[in-house]
Design a protein around this nucleic acid. Structure first.
Lengths: 147, 147
DNA sequence: TATTGTTATACTCTATAACTATA
DNA sequence: TATAGTTATAGAGTATAACAATA
C-alpha cells in the first residue's frame, strides 16, 4: 500500500541509469567536436551506402529531420550524397574516408566512456548484464502507438 | 579498428533499453490521467512535506520549472502549498489525501509495467540486474559540468 | 545583501504538413 | 497517383535571467 519511492523500483533504476549512461556517452562524443546525432548517423553509415529513407527508418527518425544532419555532415566532408541513377528521386548516402576517420575517433571516445562506466564490472559481469538487458521486454509498438 | 555498431556496445544497449523502459513507464502512468512529471512529483512528495527549493533539488530540476507543475497539482487538489510561518518566503508543499490516492493508482500502473518489462526474468535475476546496475559508474558531476 | 518563489524570454528538439521532382 | 527528399511551421521541453517578497 505504501507508495514505492522511484529509486526503489527496478524500472526507474534502469531508466535513470540508462539516461545517465547516454549522457556520459554523449559527453564523450562531444569531445570529438561532433554532435551526438552526427556521430549516430556516421555509425549507421559505416556498414555501407543506403538511401535517406532507409537510413531514417533504421534510426527511427523522420526523414525530414535527417536532412539537416546530412547537410551538416556533408559540408564537413564526412559523408556524400549522390542521385541514384536507377531512380533519380533517391539519394545514395555514403560515408567518406574523412567520415571513417571521424568514426574512429568516436569509437575511441565511446570505448573510453564504456571503460569508465563499466570499470567496476568484470568481463563476465558485463556479459551477464548484456544478457539480462537483452531479455528486458521493450515492445515499443505495443504501448507507444496509442499515444 | 572496425567501427562498432551502436547495437554491439554495452553502453548503447543500456542507454537504449533505459530509454524504452522509461517510455513504457511513462505510457503506463499516462493511463492514470497524469503527466509523468506530475507523477514523479507526487512520488517525491510522499515521504513528507518539503519546501519547493528542497523538492527541486531532489528532483534535479530548476525551481522555476517546478512552479507550473505544483500549480497544476494544486488545482487538481493533489497537493497543497502554504507559507512557512517560521520563514514566510518558503512554501511548505504537502501531498493531499486525494494525491495519495492518485499515487496509489500510479503505483499500480508502474508495477504492472514492471511486471511486463521484467517478466522474462526470475526474481533472482531481477535482483542480479539491480545489483549490476547499481555498480555502473554514473558520476554525473565529473562529465556534465563542463558542458 | 541574500534567498524563496515567480514570471518572462529564448533556445533546442521534435512532430507535422506542405512542396518539388521524379516515378 | 505515389514516392524520395526538402522546406516551413508549430509545439513541447528546458535553460536562463529578471523580478517581488521576505530575511
Amino acid at each position: 500500500m505504501a507508495a514505492a519511492h522511484p529509486n526503489d523500483r527496478l524500472g526507474f533504476l534502469l531508466s535513470f541509469r540508462g539516461e545517465l549512461t547516454g549522457a556520459r556517452i554523449r559527453a564523450a562524443v562531444a569531445v570529438t567536436g561532433l554532435h551526438p546525432r552526427h556521430a549516430m548517423t556516421l555509425m549507421q553509415l559505416a556498414p555501407g551506402a543506403t538511401s535517406q529513407r532507409e537510413l531514417a527508418a533504421t534510426m527511427e527518425i523522420d526523414p525530414s529531420q535527417l536532412v539537416a544532419v546530412l547537410n551538416e555532415l556533408e559540408s564537413a566532408g564526412l559523408c556524400e550524397r549522390r542521385r541514384d541513377p536507377a531512380d533519380r528521386r533517391r539519394h545514395i548516402v555514403e560515408i567518406t574516408p574523412a567520415g571513417k576517420e571521424a568514426l574512429g575517433h568516436i569509437d575511441q571516445a565511446v570505448s573510453e566512456a564504456e571503460r569508465e562506466l563499466f570499470g567496476n564490472l568484470t568481463e563476465a559481469e558485463q556479459e551477464l548484464l548484456r544478457g539480462l538487458l537483452d531479455r528486458v521486454v521493450v515492445d515499443r509498438a505495443a504501448h507507444e502507438c496509442g499515444e
